[in-house]
Write a protein that binds this DNA or RNA. Sequence first.
RNA 1: GCGGGUAUGGCGGAAUUGGCAGACGCGCCGGAUUUAGGAUCCGGUGGGCAACCGUGCAGGUUCGACCCCUGUUACCCGCACCA
Length: 805
Amino acid sequence: MKYEFNRIDQKWQDRWEKEGAFAAADYSEKPKFYGLVEFPYPSGAGMHVGHIKAYSGLEVISRKRRKQGYNVLFPIGFDAYGLPTENSAIKFNTHPRILTDRNIEKFTSQLKRVGFSFDWNRVIDTTDENYYKWTQYIFRKMFDEGLVFRAKTLVNYCPHCKVVLSNEDSQGGKCDICHNDIVQKSKDVWYLRITQYADKLLEGLDTVDYLPNVRLQQENWIGRSTGAFANFALVDADGNDIGESLRIYTTRCDTMFGVTFMVIAPEHPILEKYADKLNNKAELDAYKAECAKKTEFERTQLVKDKTGVRLDGIAAVNPANGKQIPVYISDYVMMGYGTGAIMAVPAHDERDYEFAKKFGIDIIEVIKGGDIDKEAYTGDGEMVNSDFLNGIQTKKEAIAAMLKFLSEKGIGEEGVQYKMKDWAFNRQRYWGEPIPIVHCPFCGDVGVPYEELPLKLPVLENFVPGEGGESPLAKIDSFVNCTCPKCGKPAKRETDTMPQWAGSSWYFLRYIDPTNADALADPEKLKYWLPVDWYNGGMEHVTRHMIYSRFWHHFLYDIGEVPTSEPYAKRTAQGLILGSDGEKMSKSRGNVVDPNDVIDEYGADVLRVYVLFMGDYASAAPWSDSSVRGCKRFLDRVGALTDIAAGRGVTPELETAFHKTIKKVTTDIEDMKFNTAIAAMMSLLNEIYEVGHITLDELETFISILNPFAPHITEEIWEMIGGKELLSLKEWPAYDEAKTVDDTIEIAVQICGKVKGTITVPAAAAQADVIAAAKADAKVAAALEGKTIVKEIYVPGRIVNIVAK
RNA sequence: GCGGGUAUGGCGGAAUUGGCAGACGCGCCGGAUUUAGGAUCCGGUGGGCAACCGUGCAGGUUCGACCCCUGUUACCCGCACCA
């Protein structure tokens, strides 16, 4: 058969659709399998081959599982709110709704051309009001439960996009969307109290099966540390207690006798509170102003050069030894972590050491083991200069002793800190879910009643953000002005919208019941389908998207809306496809490969096989046009099998190879080792051509295991050799373990660990016989000539090693 | 700086987890076919004339090491003054 992909691809895609071949069945008695891929953001550029690789992994697994008798839910949808669409709408003077619909259409046709076995009855679009109604609903529930709060804060602001960004969206001091520098700005910010779920998110990791590096990244992101809080009393210039203490957080309270100064963040409130006691307030303010100009990125970049100003008029008392110590402000202490104040131990902390050296502050060693004249010593050792801690040998014991001391004195206690911060949730943009809150002058912030959801996004002509960074919605009086749901008096609506992460935080729930008008999904259906059995996506979404969605899911579990605490039972990640130049694919480099071009030239199956064959699924690999042709050749040769296929039953020379290959493909798919699964089928194909013929039964087996990878050509062959039902749903071939081993095996014979020859023996041969056969081998015998055998080793089925002198 | 990972032919990558390194594919070389090119088919392809040598580098453990241990270099990815 000649592989005429133009005709074949369309033919089978139509038939799958007509027969609803890949529709998931709620409540089916079959075992369920929920495979999830990260739904795409429908950009104007269309899909690139990276999308195809991202979806092909679970596509193959889902197709195989269907053939194995699973009830498979393998859905797709569109994460369509967000800045890129809004920006290009402004650029092309059109409406984001129009662009979004157009882009979704484009993506849909591309996805269908590849022949993905998505359940197209369950497609969702996060910008659909029947969808975002429930995004708003979840937010409202969080509001009710006290997980939403508003605060005026210094925020990351992108002057280019005119939008406030979360810490996650502004890593490295760059806007995640436009990559311009972000600045700090005081803004009204809505926060979601994700930190309240920090421990649950951490503990939940024990109950799921994530790739080790995925787990590690999440743990680091949450960044839990245990340490101690302690209060350092403050005194004025005369040494009199001013009735205030400075609260610090430390993970090294064992070093407290080595504290020789303190540092507070420039924004620390005591500066204003005790302004009248500070003799150098102007100098301090100038330093603070200097810091405010820097972005957080700049602050963290200037790691080397420590700067700061000493508080003149206020000092602190080390609670361990009662000594008075100076207090400084410095930008190496952040207001956002711990208490915004630290106890500084220059002898045993590198940053404090640098600062002390620069400002000429005492450095007192309290742990032996280093050379504090040269550098800070952060290792373990015997405690010295530390009163009741002296002589203690380990950090652990010293910390315990100091914690006891602090709590007995009532000046400190054990405590926990997280790097993760609360989630800044509002954006001053148009193309997002309106935040369902009303500001009432009498009642404060009031949630929009549930029966009024969805709070629809008004259709605007002009959605360019305001210069001051306010939402375009703020200009629409009919949207802004409303009545308070509580007291009925005039009130104003919140005009900010939700971040793009909102809609994607729960989308996998909606697939389960995509048209439900009364609930985000039917509880019984949720119980049937949850959790997602396998979630695959990019490493870039492991911290932000996944942490956010796990947070929402934990919350929904706590309020009884979902039956599982964790949404995803298993998480894997695919590697990038690089351009043929080995660089990341990007429009500016001009190395992007369009899947449509590949399909036009070679057909969908070649594209599918190649993205999985090109390398280890989890690793990045460069695109190679000539390797694509290799996959084309493979499928052509598969098509040509129909020319040599005849008869029924088993070809003896191929029997073992078939059982081996079925086994390998079966297990490799589950291990996401798609490249070696395909290689095994290529090898088998080579063997078939060496033998020169194949039975129709064997051909059926071959195309059946190839079907998840190359569904179009295999369906066509199946039909051609008399198949009536869809091969895609026909049962997965079984293999007989006993038949995966050869009768005779080749064994390498080593002498002193070096291979000297090979022998062929029956697989079941006894050790003595194998060794005898090895010695009988001419080359081996020659090499043993004149030597004394010291030891003989036989690893069954593997190797013979004769040690001789 | 801290954490994690990777390093194998000209290239992408295999290697049953300590047992014949280089499966499979690309590329390349030769042959067949073709007026020619392309496509296709057949054969070859780590290096070396050879003994042998070969998995970033230097050691070690072992009958035997790509795999384990110690040290080291380069690159990639996270996080980044986290107290």
